[in-house]
Design a protein around this nucleic acid. Structure first.
Lengths: 339, 339
DNA sequence: TTGTAAGCGTTATCAG
DNA sequence: CTGATAACGCTTACAA
C-alpha cells in the first residue's frame, strides 16, 4: 500500500510538506506542490479517510439498521426505498452509508451501542423493529444519535420520521363508510407494532364516530405477511359473510386478502371492497387495482437521514417529523348497493 | 469519547495492559483483567475497529456499488435482493457492507479507485453499469478486487457472477417455438448492455436453428423501462399483427407489453404469448401470471460477496461463477391454435 | 504479570 | 516555505 511516507521519500520532501501540498494549503511553493502532486499520482497514492478522521474526530458515515434483511423483503420495495432515500441525502452532505441488521449485532453477542461504536458511525436510522423488541430500549436510550422510521416513541430526544398513521387509517375507514359500507373488518399487522396500534385506533375511532359498534372479532392480525393475511381472511369471511369491506394494514397483506376472496368465490370489488396501505408498486398492477394509502418510503429514508444529520450536529430542531400520506382510490373499492 | 487511555487512567493500569485485558490475552492477572473489564464497562468504552485495523491492515468491509440508486429501482426488488444477499454473506464472515453509487464518485470528481481507496474497502461488488460506461475500464483494470454482477468481461482476473443469459434466452425461445409460435418478436433491454447482447444472441440462434428467419425489425429495445417497452410494443404490434409471441428481456418491460396489448385489445395469452425475464415478485401477481425466466438475485448477491472474499484473500478460484436459471411457465403463454 | 516504547497513516503546531 | 515533532487511538515487541 502506498502511504504518504512513500510520496515523501520519492518526492524528496517531508511528510508534512506532502500532507499540506495534497490538502491544498497555501504556504508551500508552487514547485513543491507540483512535484508532490505528480509523484502522488505516479504512486497512485490515496489517503485513508478513516485515518484522517482520527484527528478530526468525525467518521462521516451513518448506518441504516433493519431488523432483518430477508429474501422476502423485496416484494414491497419498502426497504429498498428507504435505503435509496437515506443514501441520497447522506450522499449530498458527503456522508457514507453502511447497512446493518439487528441480527448482525445479536450474532456477535454485543450490544447495539457497541456494535455501532466499533464501526465508528455518527448515527443510525433504525426501522422494522417493534417497541417490544429487547433492543428497543437500548437503542432509544443510547447516546448515539438515532432516527426511527415508523416507530413512535414518547422520547422526544429520539428522532422519528413517520406519517400520521392514525389519521391515515381514519381517512381510509371514513372513505369506506362514505361509500356505504357498514360491515368493515380490519386485517392489521403485527399486534404490538406501534404502527398497528395507531392504525387500529384510527379505524376504531371512525367506527365509533359513526355509531357503528366495534367488533373485536373482525380485527385480525396478519403480521404483515401475505400468507397469514390469507389465512385470517379466509377464516373471517367464512364466519362472517356479512363483511363487505376490509381495511388492510399493508398492501402485501391485501394480496393475501385478494387470494382468500378468490378462493371463496368472492368478487372484488363487487362483493368485497379492499383498502390497502403503503402503495407498493404491485398495488397498481394487480387486478383489480388496489385502493390504498400511499406513503412515500423514499421520502421517509431521505427525511430520516436529514433529521439524523441535524441531530448529529446537535441542532435545535423538532425531533418528530410527520410526512404526508394520501388515499389513492383505485378499483378494489366500490360503493355498496346491496340490501 | 471514551478511549483506551481513559480506561487505563481510571483502572490504574497502563494502556497496554488494558489493551491486552480487553483482547483476551492470557498473560495478565485475573485481578487486573476483572478490574479493567469492569472499568471499561462503567466507562462505556468501545474500541474503534477502524483504528485496530491500522495495524492489522484490513478494514473488513466491502462495497456494493450501483450505477444509480433511483426511486424507480424499487419495483423489481432486484437491487434490494442483491444487497440482502451480499450482506448475508459478508456478515457471515464478519465483513461490513457500504453502499455507493458510481454517481457519488462522479459528483466528487474523483476516480472510482480513489473513491474506494479513501474509504478503505477491501473490494467491491459492481452492478448495473454497462460495458461502455466511461468508468467500466477503470473499474475492471483497477487493482481493487472487484466482482461484477451480470456484466460479462473477457478479463479473467475480474470476478463475474451471472446466469448463462444466452442459454436462458434460448430456452425461452425454444419453449415458445415448442408450443407452436412462429412469429416471435423480442423486446430487449438497453442495446449495448452485455446481457442484452447475450439474450439477443440466444434468441436469434434458436430462430435460426429452427429455420425461422430473423427479422431485425421484430427486435426492439425497451431499455429495461416499462414505458419504453410499452411504446415499442405498441408500434410493433400495430405494424405486424402477425406476431403471436413476445420474448421480453425483463419482467418490468413485460408489464409495458401487457399494457400495450391491452390498449390494442389484444388478449394475453389467447392472441399473444409473453415470456418475461427475472421473475420479480410482480410476475406471479399480475394477471395473467407471467411466464418468465427466473434468476435468483439474492443468490447473485450472496455469491458475488463470496467470490469477492476469495479474490481478496487471493485464493486460486474460478473467477467466473455461473448461476442456474429456470423457466417458469405460468399463464401468459399458450400453445398456438390459429391459422 | 506489567509497563515502556515503537509503530500504524495522518494532520496540526511551531520553530527554523 | 519547510520540516521536526507531537498527537490521534490502538496494538505489539520487548524489557523490567
Amino acid at each position: 500500500m502506498t502511504t504518504i511516507k512513500d510520496v515523501a521519500k520519492k518526492s524528496g520532501y517531508s511528510i508534512s510538506t506532502v500532507s499540506k501540498a495534497l490538502n491544498g494549503y497555501k504556504d508551500i511553493s508552487e514547485k513543491a506542490k507540483n512535484k508532490i502532486i505528480k509523484v502522488a499520482e505516479e504512486l497512485n497514492y490515496v489517503p485513508d479517510l478513516s485515518l484522517k478522521n482520527i484527528t478530526k474526530r468525525e467518521s462521516r458515515s451513518i448506518a441504516v439498521i433493519f431488523s432483518g434483511l430477508s429474501k422476502d423483503g423485496a416484494a414491497d420495495g419498502i426497504m429498498y426505498n428507504i435505503i435509496a432515500g437515506a443514501f441520497e441525502y447522506a450522499n449530498s452532505v458527503n456522508y457514507d452509508v453502511k447497512i446493518f441488521t439487528i441480527n448482525a449485532a445479536i450474532q456477535k453477542e454485543i450490544s447495539y451501542f457497541r456494535f455501532c461504536k466499533e464501526r465508528n458511525i455518527e448515527g443510525a436510522i433504525v426501522m422494522g423493529i417493534s417497541s417490544d423488541d429487547p433492543y428497543f430500549e437500548e437503542i432509544i436510550s443510547s447516546k448515539l444519535p438515532v432516527v426511527l422510521i415508523d416507530i413512535l416513541t414518547e422520547n422526544m430526544n429520539v428522532g422519528v420520521v413517520s406519517i400520521d398513521h392514525e389519521k391515515a387509517a381514519q381517512e381510509a375507514t371514513n372513505y369506506l363508510i362514505g361509500i356505504g359500507h357498514k360491515n368493515i373488518a380490519m386485517i392489521n399487522g403485527k399486534k404490538n407494532a406501534v404502527v398497528s396500534k395507531l392504525r387500529e385506533n384510527g379505524f376504531k375511532k371512525v367506527l365509533e364516530e359513526n355509531n357503528m359498534k366495534v367488533n373485536e372479532k373482525w380485527i385480525a392480525y396478519g403480521d404483515f405477511s401475505r400468507q397469514k393475511a390469507f389465512n385470517e381472511t379466509y377464516k373471517l369471511l367464512q364466519l362472517y359473510p356479512e363483511i363487505t369491506a376490509i381495511f388492510c394494514a399493508s398492501d402485501i397483506m391485501a394480496i393475501g386478502v385478494y387470494e382468500a376472496a378468490e378462493k371463496l368465490g368472492i368478487s372484488i370489488p363487487d362483493d368485497l371492497s379492499i383498502v390497502g396501505f403503503d402503495n407498493i408498486p404491485l398495488a397498481s398492477f394487480i387486478t383489480p387495482k388496489l385502493t390504498t394509502v400511499k406513503q412515500d418510503m423514499y421520502k421517509n429514508g431521505y427525511e430520516a437521514a436529514k433529521l439524523l444529520r441535524f441531530i448529529i450536529k446537535n441542532e435545535n430542531i423538532e425531533r418528530h417529523k410527520i410526512l404526508t400520506h394520501e388515499l389513492l382510490v383505485r378499483d378494489s373499492t366500490k360503493a355498496i348497493n346491496r340490501i
